[in-house]
Design a protein around this nucleic acid. Structure first.
Length: 604
DNA sequence: CCCCCCCC
């Protein structure tokens, strides 16, 4: 790299430009980063997002700018370091204490490791730099305890010019000290209206997440603001918003990346933006599913993958609140040949459909450590099915071209003690039945999990199904009350029940045999018929039923099981439950063996 | 002014 390749003159131009001219100067400047420094945040007691101050040079002059926080990964991953050459693709300007502050919104790395080019000096106007650093040269700025830049009390002044002649403020620059702002933001999440009731009173509220190119912020409307504004905002749309209140965020309650949050008030002005140019879009920092194991539990991350499996709709009852919520597990895979379980909740779980293995992008999903690594949507997370972004198209192309053929290593079943697996059947972690007994799985207080391949030898025929509540997600046993079937849980009476399987199966492999308890999914796998159909056969013709039971033996399945002790009538016994059961797919097995051979060192 | 983000 030479001085000629840098965009000489740009630092002087940026430095001298009036604030509302900065955006108009365009972008695409090639510059050298002379310094990258973390700025200490002293205004917020809660842990803050890192902010980086950059000094960049065009070879002649240097200026100072802030790095938009969504680019922080470039620093933390070491993709930009001192002296890296970058192209600044997008730049804006903000006002702090009447000083112009440049914010780098997007950049591309041209070359990471470089020598310093030329001998640049501070750009002519000092108005870009805060007074305490205006005369510093990059080499001399050794102070690590820099003053906070963005969140100081400051005169409110609009930063950049919007399309319709209004002044648009970047979300990253919002603080309690600015008041005359308008943001142009996309609603990336809109929650349902919630009500609360506690000692201090009761009321209703809703949350939205607002996002522009510079950042995101959570906004909440209470009571009257709910009536006034809830219907005005639609997820996915872009709005001009002004006259909201900005306060310090209580970080422990939100995963939205902002030190502040916004309260929408009755007089908050919200106007839909219909101008289709330059709308804010979601910014992702995708990580590969392979690299998930490096993340801590409860961290959030962005991932993109193919939806390989859509689990059935389930229900969990929260231990904390005793409330029931719908959930659904998805399995996503990516180019790193890893798969991971992704749990979605509530209405999203109920309405989720995905026919043809779509690409789905997730932003801000929570990392769990159950059975290895798993992911879960939060209310602040964002999911986009078949997003029109480059990464999605690349993944689509790769998967359709090569991916369908691959086997994926699950993040959600590694690292369990004893090397067992979670819900997915894992060929590498399989146990023989004798091994299950000998290693005393399920004998400790917790549930142990294992995979096995075994053949069904016998199914206890007398009681293979029970009359269940037909309400989706209930499945509780109902009782015949003469003129109908009563579900205590739903407090309803139904004309007829929906039978569901509950079976004891003896299964065997070369090493031994075991009794497994299976539920509805297991019955469907064994019989290929619903329990209703089976019960109908049983009622119509007992010998047909007996023949069916006899024929059910002899088939071989892959099982995912849980071993657990339970106590019933003062008797403690070890029970093995089937969590997943599927016919052996010999084509899949052969592919798995082939991949094993490919992976083994002697074959390389 | 809410504040739960769940379960195996």
């Amino acid at each position: 790299m030479s001085q000629q390749q840098l965009s000489a003159g740009v630092c002087a131009r940026l430095s001298e430009a009036a604030p509302d001219e900065v955006d108009g100067l365009g972008a695409g400047y090639t510059v050298q980063l002379l310094s990258i420094k973390k700025v200490n945040q002293t205004t917020s007691a809660a842990p803050a997002i890192d902010r980086y101050r950059i000094i960049f040079s065009d070879g002649v002059h240097f200026v100072q700018a802030m790095l938009a926080t969504q680019l922080n990964d470039l620093v933390s991953r070491g993709e930009i370091i001192k002296n890296s050459i970058v192209v600044i693709d997008k730049l804006t300007c903000n006002f702090v204490q009447d000083k112009k502050l440049l914010i780098i919104l997007d950049l591309q790395v041209v070359s990471k490791e470089e020598e310093k080019i030329g001998n640049p000096v501070s750009a002519p106007s000092s108005s870009i730099l805060p007074p305490d650093t205006a005369t510093e040269t990059p080499e001399a700025s050794t102070s690590t305890a820099s003053r906070p830049v963005v969140s100081r009390p400051a005169a409110a002044r609009p930063a950049a010019s919007g399309g319709e002649g209004r002044s648009i403020y970047p979300i990253e620059g919002l603080s309690p000290y600015q008041n005359n702002w308008t943001v142009k933001a996309r609603v990336t999440h809109k929650a349902d209206i919630r009500t609360w009731s506690n000692q201090r009173g009761e009321g209703k509220l809703f949350n939205v997440t607002l996002m522009d190119e510079t950042g995101e912020i959570r906004a909440t409307g209470f009571n009257a603001a709910v009536d006034e504004l809830y219907d005005k905002l639609e997820e996915g749309k872009v709005y001009y918003i002004s006259r909201g209140r900005v306060n310090l965020a209580k970080k422990k309650f939100s995963n939205v990346q902002n030190d502040y949050e916004m309260t929408l008030e009755r007089n908050t002005v919200i106007e839909e933006c219909v101008d289709t140019t330059n709308l804010p879009t979601i910014k992702y920092n995708f990580i590969s599913l392979a690299s998930m194991e490096n993340l801590q539990k409860d961290a959030t991350c962005d991932v993109i993958g193919i939806i390989k499996e859509v689990g059935p709709l389930g229900e969990v009852v929260s231990k904390a609140t005793n409330k029931s919520v719908a959930k659904r597990d998805l399995t996503i895979v990516d180019k790193s040949l890893y798969s991971v379980r992704m749990t979605i909740w509530g209405r999203q779980a109920e309405t989720f459909t995905a026919d043809d293995l779509p690409v789905v992008a997730f932003k801000g999903v929570k990392v769990g450590d159950f059975g290895g690594r798993s992911l879960s949507m939060l209310s602040s997370s964002y999911m986009s099915i078949s997003p029109d972004i480059e990464e999605a198209h690349l993944l689509r192309g790769w998967y359709d071209g090569f991916g369908t053929d691959k086997t994926f290593q699950s993040q959600s079943n590694t690292m369990l003690p004893g090397g067992s697996s979670f819900s997915g059947f894992n060929r590498n972690e399989m146990r023989h039945l004798s091994d299950v007994k000998e290693s005393q799985l399920g004998m400790s207080d917790k549930t142990d999990i294992f995979s096995t391949r075994a053949t069904v030898m016998h199914i206890k025929g007398e009681n293979i199904a029970y009359p269940a509540c037909p309400t989706q997600g209930c499945s509780k046993k109902v009782t015949d009350i003469g003129d109908g079937w009563r579900c205590e849980k739903c407090d309803k009476t139904y004309e007829r029940p929906e039978y569901r399987y509950v079976m004891s199966m003896a299964v065997a492999d070369w090493s031994g045999q075991l009794w497994l308890q299976g539920f509805n999914d297991a019955g469907l796998a064994v019989f290929g018929k619903t329990a209703d159909e089976i019960m109908e056969i049983k009622e119509r013709n007992e010998s047909d039923y007996n023949a069916l039971m006899a024929h059910s033996a002899g088939k071989t399945f892959n099982f995912s099981c849980r071993a657990k002790q339970d106590t019933y009538n003062d008797q403690t016994r070890l029970r093995y439950g089937v969590s997943k059961m599927s016919s052996v797919d010999y084509y899949e097995e052969a592919k798995g063996l082939r991949d094993l051979i490919k992976e083994s060192s002697w074959a390389r």
